Simulated scan of single mutants.
Amino acid sequence: MKGLTPQLGFGRIAAFAGLAVLGALVGIAGSLVQGGWFPGGLLLALLGIAALCYGGVTATGSRSGGVAPGIGWLIAVLMLTASRPEGDFLFGAGLGSYAFLLGGMIVAVICATVPKLSQPGGPSVRLGK
């Protein structure tokens, strides 16, 4: 069954690495926006990671395209939540921060696991024609 699965070449690896970097940038930007404009910023941050993960699935044609930005986002956000020697960190202890952390993980998993429906081939999909 050669041809059903896409080959893992240099271009695909570069695309996945680029998606992971974009996921990290979206995570950093979302962590700043969600606290600044609480209700709207949180929604904007979650929509950003959802759009990137679904765009990765669509662009690469595989679920791995949704996993790569999710992993980049997770690594960036986890690094931002790590405590510094001074004792403070970027996220405050509020409902918005927890909603961003858990919501972003849930959105990334949903976008990476939702099956991509393929379009039927052929000239017409209507039964009467």
Rank of each mutant, 00 (worst) to 15 (best):
V26E: 04
M1T: 09
G55K: 01
T60K: 00
F91A: 00
L74Y: 14
P85H: 03
K129F: 14
L19C: 02
A112Y: 00
E86R: 05
A68Q: 01
G40T: 07
P39S: 08
V107A: 10
A112L: 07
M1K: 09
L46M: 09
S97N: 08
F38S: 08
A50I: 04
G65I: 04
P123V: 11
L102H: 11
E86L: 13
P6S: 10
I28Y: 12
G72F: 02
I110R: 09
L52F: 05
G94T: 05
L52C: 01
M79C: 13
G27H: 03
L52Y: 03
A20G: 11
I75M: 11
L101H: 01
T5N: 12
L102E: 06
D88M: 11
L47H: 07
G36A: 15
G3Q: 09
Q34D: 08
K2V: 10
R126Y: 13
A108Y: 05
I106V: 15
L32D: 07
S83W: 14
V107I: 12
L44A: 15
G41V: 01
T81F: 12
C111V: 08
G56D: 02
S62K: 04
L47E: 06
V21R: 02
G36C: 06
K129T: 04
G40Y: 15
A24N: 08
G30P: 10
G41P: 04
T113S: 10
G87K: 04
G27P: 00
S31Q: 05
I49L: 09
M105F: 15
L44H: 04
